[in-house]
Design a binder for these strands. Structure first.
Lengths: 350, 350
DNA sequence: AATTTTGTTGTAAACGATTACATCACGCGT
DNA sequence: ACGCGTGATGTAATCGTTTACAACAAAATT
């Protein structure tokens, strides 16, 4: 015995008007006289009517949803970004679809960046991509500019695809981090990298090297540690640091998570931070300031990145497909800030 | 110049068959002869056809999406749960809609638990609720059992609403944590609570008190610290601990995040953990084992909780509304495990 | 008083898929 | 030859909205 949910027809009948009037009362109340409007609202109340989104979407040729493609949902870095996106998107009346582009165990199958089937114009009105490693073909396979959903990158991006994006200045940030280390007197400075293919990895390393070069220094090959933004890769770097005969006195890590893994493993082996090694993180997670010692790090305005990306996408969705195709769209770069706490100090003497 | 996306009609025309045949070739290929099937697929390729989800949803009276209601997206505890949910749900062909029920700054407006407008049967085929504080009326306002979307709770739940759920045994877990402390010789044991109204808060406290009672001990009122699962509330508890003349020698924290905030603030004031205070956390976040000292904590199987909740929801969605209404549905309780690391030790002598 | 404007409402055609039902051709048993 | 089951396909109704257009009354203009 299937109880069918009331439709706009039932409301119309209950209010003694046509379905068109009900629809108008809902979407543009000012085009309907006050008395009928009240009657309609009363009828809605009485019947328990709820709009059928699928029907509306079909008719209006839009979906009311945007998708967010996250490389790794389990990474706490993304939570604040997501939260910022969700806030402005639901404000604007959109649903937010979230997917992990590397479903389980990143690092397991290396090249696992999946493009979810629903991320096309039939399912979503827009796309926010947080994963720069998503194959460029995938984005282009969404069809010609006229029919593919407006897309913006945030945090990461792909150099093969020209889309609007909101990021930070990763090379400047990396440079600032290393300048701080240099100013403290360090000359042997290492870097704990992000995942090999990632844009962020390249940019942050480039910034670090620029600062080094400006100070007449260089980074020995043994001082750059491979990483993948995970705690474990931070701990592995600590092993490497301990094992090598020629060690850097300071390490700039491409993420707070790795920095915490690095410092944790170091301290567990009795290495003192910052007395024996200085460490700088990246991101300024909530955790960073509560960690002991409190992490010196590069702050990224995470909620703002999410919010800006969402607002930018909203703007792009308002444009006509033609004008959208014509302009590649803006590139917002948000400011970062070096926040100096307890993990950096002058190098040990001798 | 609007380029219209190809519809099933265009495919039918290109393949020289009817729309019905195209639809069949897609959804039940075995009901269509091999030659026509090939012709249809070729036509699909050629036209660049993509199924319009809204039209299908309208016709089939389903939405292809499930919503997950998260109390606080920025809390890293939820990321692994979400990731587990997303994995099995996309596997099963569903989209996952994520929303924060307390949009910005929990603790700001205290009672901010919002029920998103789209969480009804018109928008989603199912609901996973991670927020036990969501007003029960809200869930019931979704309509009578026949027409409201199947719902399962995970992690948290509401005692006012009878729905299937997957949780852990919070009182047993709390009890186990405190038993460990008692076994180490502690007799003055405090508790850092979750948010006041939360079920988890009550249960974990109840477990702690049960263990205490079994050992002939009791918790002084001054030893229970208010909290809200945030780092800051952990730090505040450290202030309270330091300020009081009569202090517990061990504190069981209702979350790892709070335990980290607590220990961080303690160490920053020179208090030694575990020499002066033992601390137990709850959750076993990735971070817990990398923190220094490594956190003794109660492990929750977070990915499994998410996966089980998703699978349970899938099962419920398969049931007819009638049988669903008839059975309240199972309550899965997943095992926890006390993992002893470095933050617990016997109480200081004297 | 005749005409135009304005404001409200109804009629009905989309939107793009699914699917019950009808149709048709073919092969089989009697 | 005849009827009948079977498998493949087509026809057309349907899902629940939105919206262009038509219709009409009342008010404003001439």
């Amino acid at each position: 015995m299937k109880t069918k949910a009331p439709s706009i027809r039932d409301v119309a009948a209950a209010a003694g008007v046509s379905t068109a009037t009900v629809s108008r009362a809902l979407s543009s109340p000012d085009k309907v006289s006050a008395p009928t409007r009240d009657a309609v609202f009363r009828a809605i109340e009485q019947t328990g009517y709820r709009l059928n989104i699928a029907a509306r979407n079909l008719r209006k040729r839009e979906t009311g949803a945007v998708a967010v493609l996250v490389p790794n949902l389990a990474n706490p870095f993304f939570s604040a970004i997501l939260s910022g996106i969700a806030a402005v998107m639901s404000e604007a009346g959109y649903n937010v679809l979230v997917t992990d582009t590397t479903p389980f165990g990143r690092g397991d199958g290396v090249t696992g960046h999946q493009f979810p089937a629903f991320a096309n114009a039939r399912h979503v009105d827009g796309l926010i991509v947080l994963d720069g490693l998503l194959p460029a073909e995938a984005l282009d396979s969404l069809g010609p500019p006229q029919i593919r959903p407006p897309t913006v990158y945030a945090c990461e991006w792909s150099e093969l695809v020209d889309r609007p994006r909101v990021t930070i200045d990763n090379v400047a940030a990396g440079q600032g981090a290393v300048e701080h280390l240099v100013a403290l007197g360090h000359s042997k400075i290492g870097h704990l990298c992000g995942p090999p293919e990632n844009v962020l990895t390249r940019e942050r390393l480039k910034g670090a090297q620029a600062a080094l070069a400006a100070a007449g220094l260089a980074m020995a090959p043994g001082w750059v540690y491979p990483g993948d933004f995970s705690l474990e890769s931070g701990a592995r770097a600590a092993d490497a640091w301990c094992a090598a005969p020629d060690r850097p006195t300071a390490v700039f890590c491409a993420s707070d998570v790795m920095a915490i893994g690095f410092i944790g493993a170091l301290m567990r082996r009795g290495v003192k931070v910052p007395a024996e090694v200085s460490v700088i993180g990246f991101d300024d997670l909530d955790m960073a300031s509560h960690f002991v010692p409190a992490l010196t790090t590069v702050r990224q305005p995470r909620p703002e990145i999410g919010q800006s990306a969402a607002r930018l996408l909203l703007e792009r969705m308002d444009l006509s497909p033609a004008t959208r195709a014509a302009s590649p769209g803006p590139r917002l770069v948000l400011p970062t800030e070096l926040v100096v706490r307890e993990t950096t100090a002058p190098p040990p003497v001798g």
